[in-house]
């Protein structure tokens, strides 16, 4: 029985109306385009899976997918190895030094990826700053090639992704009570054991957040591999763009994009589920 109430004013209904406007906008200009990409990936061939057969049969496309995974993995591992000790130190800074370190980490955040990639192109030239320095120091006799190969792509991408690894790590480290480490020391654990059994487990939420963010973002990278990478080592986002602008094969581009979409979404859902189960907040919190 509902009593005599009928349609009752409620804050929840008001907030539903408020939320519906942006959600409607995103349904039209985000969900619909995404759905369009997936639908188009089933067109333009014999049988609905023909584009996917092409993607997974031709070795050159498989190579692109594997290379994308490999770059994302390497970049994630490099970022983690570099960021972990740096974050551990920065997290213990106080006052002015902390602000300076934060500013230095955030500056690249505020700089366009195009610009940062351009900077690496300048530095990487045959007669560029890095080669010049290395020759002057007598480390090498001939200029090294950094561009249009693996090295340049990795240096450039690690540079762009590093803040995304540093920030969650720093926030995780700052949440660790330093008295735990002191307690472990008092109880007789040597620094390595204390690190292994206390610090490392407590920093895991930051590690998993950073790894998820860097890996997933790296999968869809476009600008840096397009400018610094070579024709033989192509990442999937670059291939998608080429399929549209050069080959004008929208259906194949859509199939590649759908694969990327599926992998990205699946990884986020897994990460959300894992971090929720681990007791931390999910992606949405």
């Amino acid at each position: 029985m509902q009593g005599t109430t009928g349609r009752i004013w409620s804050p929840a209904r008001g907030y539903f109306v408020i939320l519906s406007l942006p959600v409607l906008f995103l349904l039209v200009f985000f969900v619909w385009p995404m759905a369009g990409v997936v639908l188009r990936s089933f067109e333009g061939g014999e049988g609905i899976f023909s584009q996917y057969l092409t993607v997974f049969e031709r070795s050159s496309y498989i190579k692109v997918l594997l290379y994308t995974l490999q770059v994302a993995t390497t970049v994630t591992v490099l970022c983690l190895l570099i960021a972990y000790p740096v974050a551990a130190l920065v997290a213990r800074l106080q006052g002015k030094w902390l602000q300076i370190a934060f500013a230095l980490i955030l500056v690249p955040f505020w700089t366009s990826t195009v610009i940062r990639t351009y900077a690496w192109m300048v530095l990487f030239q045959r007669k560029g700053v890095i080669n010049g320095m290395l020759i002057d120091m007598g480390l090498i006799a001939e200029p090294l090639r950094f561009m249009h190969n693996n090295i340049g792509v990795h240096i450039g991408m690690v540079h762009i992704m590093l803040p995304f690894m540093l920030l969650p790590l720093i926030s995780a480290f700052r949440n660790i009570d330093p008295s735990y480490m002191r307690a472990a020391g008092v109880l007789g654990a040597n620094p390595i054991r204390a690190f292994w059994h206390v610090y490392l487990p407590l920093s895991m939420p930051g590690v998993s957040a950073g790894v998820a963010l860097v890996f997933i973002t790296s999968l869809g990278f476009f600008i840096t591999p397009a400018l610094l990478g070579g024709a033989h080592n192509m990442m999937v986002a670059v291939l998608i763009e080429q399929q549209v602008t050069i080959t004008v094969n929208w259906e194949l581009a859509s199939a590649l994009a759908s694969v990327l979409l599926l992998v990205t979404a699946a990884l986020y859902i897994v990460y959300d589920w894992v971090s929720r189960r681990a007791g931390g907040g999910g992606v949405l919190d």
């Binding site: 985000f30 999968l219 929208w250 581009a253 990327l260």
Partner: peptide, 11 residues
């Protein structure tokens, strides 16, 4: 969270 290239070719 999703790669912008997908949105670009969808839009």
């Amino acid at each position: 969270m999703l790669p912008q290239i997908i949105l670009a070719i969808g839009l």
